[in-house]
Every structure is written in C-alpha cells, then in structure tokens.
Amino acid sequence: MNNTNKFKMFLIRNAVPIVFLVVSAIAIPISRFSLDYLVQEMLIRLSRNSFLVLSLLVPIMAGMGLNFGMVLGAMAGQLGLIFVSDWNVVGLNGMVLAAVIATPLAIFFGWICGVVLNKARGREMVTSYILGFFMNGVYQLAVLYGFGSIVPITNTKLVLSRGYGIRNTINLDSIRRCLDDLIPLEIFGIQIPVATFIVIGLFCLFIVWFRKTKLGQDMRATGQDMGVADSAGIPVLRTRVISIVISTVLACYGQIIFLQNVGTMNTYNSHEQAGVFAIASLLVGGASVSRASILNVFVGVILFHLMFVVSPMAGKYLTGDAQIGEFFRVFVSYGIISLALVLHAWRRHADREIARAQFRGQNADGGTKK
C-alpha cells in the first residue's frame, strides 16, 4: 500500500474525530468561554461520563458491536437509587448500597439481553436498540404504577400526589458528589474529582487485565470469528452472554456515578440519554463497531462534550439564538452514530477489496507482485 492509500485509509478511519477537532477549533473562540471554564467543564464531564463509555468496550471485544442495551444497566442503577432515596441512606454508603441493590437486577437484565442477542446473531445492534425500547416500557410501567402500590415507598416526596408512582424528578442531595468530593483537590481554582478518577483508573486497569485472562481471550477469539472460536472449543454463545452481562453491570455502576455527580435524576428519561451519549462519545473518539480502545473513550468524551459545551453559545453569537446550538447538539448525537455506521460499512468494503486484490496476487495500488 503506497503513501497515498495509507493517508486515505487514515482519513477514513479517523474521519469523525478529525471533523470534531476542526469544528471545535472554530466554535471555541466564537463561544467566548475562558480556558479555565472549559478545563473545569471537561474534568467534570470526564469524571461523569467515562465509566459509562468504558462499559461499552467489553461487548465490542466479543464481536457484539455497540451495546445499545446498556440502557438496561442504567435502569437497574436508577432503581437502586430510588430505594436508597426512599430509605434516606446518605453519602458514600448510600451510593454503595444503590450499587449493591442494582447489581442482581443488572445481571438479570444483561442475561436477558445476551440471550436475545444470541438469537439475532449478525443484527445485535439494532436488536439491542429495540430491546432497550421494550425494556424502557417495562421499566416505566413498574416505576409509574408498581412503586407505591405493590412496592412500598415510605418517602412521600418521591411519590406522586395520587399515592403511587415515582415523581418525574428525584432530588439526590443525599448522595450528591459524595464520590467526587471524597478526596478534594483544587489547583488554580479548578476542582479535580480525584476519587472518581481513581475509580475510573482502576476500571481501565481491570480492562487491561481482563483482556489477558482466559475469558478475555475467548471473547477476542469470538469477536474475530465465531466459527473458528467454536471449532477451538470455546463456548461461543455463553461467552457472548457473559460479555453483555458484564457490560450491563458496568453500565449500572456508571449510571450511579453519573447521577451522583449531577445530583438529580430524571426518573423516566435519564437512562435513555446515557445510552445515546455514551455510544456517540465512543464513536467520536475514533472507535468503530468492531474496534475500540481505552484511548478512544477519553478522546471521545473530551471532543463530544466539548462540542456540547461550546455549541449553544457559539450558536447564540452566530445567529442570536442559543436554541440553534441546542438543535445542533441533538443533531450531532444521532448523526454521529449514523455516520460511524456508514463509515464502518465503507471500511469493511474497502478491507475486503484490498484482501481480494492481494489474494489475486496484486498490491492494493493495482501493481503486480514479483
């Protein structure tokens, strides 16, 4: 492959982060935000969102693609937070208790998702997306009608005025920033959530270690070729289910970390935003449906949320209406997923053409091997 083709393939593989870098470079000066403000916002959003995005890496390693079913884990985390808020367990103890309550639910949801995706091999992403919609209906039915009637809720501030059903917004003051402020650190007026970054760092080490384990190697083999993995004696279907269960449990913990940072929970919508934004962030970082790394996670979170911060003000100064920037953010969230899927299909086609040319005894640039 000559230098021209190498450069072309580099642009194809990194088109999304390059576009975001260019747009951000243009929007930052227009938004007129100070450097200190942008650095503080990026640190907050890194600590808030990184765990959720990291939970997507395991299914990609197992060849399951982008796990839109991670919203099931987010639902489990929110159910844990509802119970903690009802029991008024405060601080880090409340956050840990919410995770303990939510873990068996997340395992169950992940198992359901994994079993369903095994029935839809080759169409995992669209299936997990639709499954997320279905389970969202089940979740809303349970929270809107089951809590307060079947499941006892003693805190009247959580229940709707009719006597059952959880309110649209729950105040999480009892656990707000309990992890972020556990180890306070301020440098030049910028607050750094050290404890949260330590948890995220430990998670990254876990992923690096997990890839080297027997289960991690099985997942990588399954992701590369299920037929070869099955011939090698790897329980392919079981391995795929385990990858989804792990991702769902991790997404549950990520949602709890996210909401303790925000301090409020939108009972019926928070989990939906978590899934779309996490997947979009990973794709913005240069990941694809079949390949993702820890570096992609952090690059993606920074670029995607930098765009989220600067676009409303840039839209306001350019057009006089900040709402234009808000529309742009929604457009980017869904558009970047569509673009990444198109680029993935294009890239697979290009790789097949190169492999076919090499198989015929030709170089990728059309020359003949000697």
Rank of each mutant, 00 (worst) to 15 (best):
234 I>Y: 04
234 I>Q: 02
234 I>D: 01
236 V>L: 04
236 V>P: 02
237 L>P: 02
237 L>D: 01
238 R>A: 03
239 T>N: 04
239 T>P: 05
239 T>M: 06
241 V>Q: 02
242 I>N: 08
243 S>I: 05
243 S>D: 03
243 S>H: 03
244 I>R: 00
244 I>H: 00
247 S>T: 00
249 V>I: 08
250 L>M: 10
251 A>W: 03
252 C>A: 14
253 Y>I: 08
254 G>N: 02
256 I>K: 10
257 I>Q: 03
258 F>T: 02
260 Q>A: 00
261 N>P: 06
261 N>E: 11
263 G>E: 09
265 M>Q: 11
266 N>V: 11
266 N>T: 13
266 N>I: 13
269 N>L: 13
270 S>M: 10
270 S>F: 06
271 H>E: 12
272 E>F: 13
272 E>M: 15
273 Q>I: 14
273 Q>A: 14
274 A>F: 14
274 A>H: 04
275 G>D: 08
275 G>F: 07
276 V>H: 06
276 V>T: 15
277 F>H: 10
278 A>T: 01
279 I>H: 01
280 A>T: 15
282 L>V: 11
283 L>N: 07
285 G>E: 00
286 G>W: 15
286 G>P: 15
286 G>Y: 12
288 S>L: 11
291 R>Q: 14
291 R>S: 13
291 R>N: 14
292 A>G: 07
292 A>Y: 04
293 S>E: 04
294 I>F: 02
294 I>D: 00
295 L>D: 00
296 N>V: 11
296 N>I: 09
297 V>L: 07
297 V>R: 03
297 V>Y: 02
297 V>Q: 03
298 F>Q: 00
298 F>L: 02
299 V>M: 08
299 V>H: 05
299 V>I: 14
300 G>V: 00
301 V>E: 05
301 V>A: 06
302 I>H: 01
303 L>T: 12
303 L>H: 12
305 H>L: 05
307 M>R: 06
309 V>R: 04
310 V>I: 14
311 S>V: 12
313 M>K: 05
313 M>P: 03
313 M>I: 06
314 A>F: 08
316 K>E: 12
317 Y>R: 05
317 Y>A: 05
319 T>W: 09
320 G>D: 12
320 G>A: 09
321 D>A: 10
323 Q>I: 13
323 Q>K: 09
324 I>L: 11
325 G>Q: 12
325 G>V: 10
326 E>T: 09
326 E>Y: 12
328 F>D: 05
328 F>Y: 13
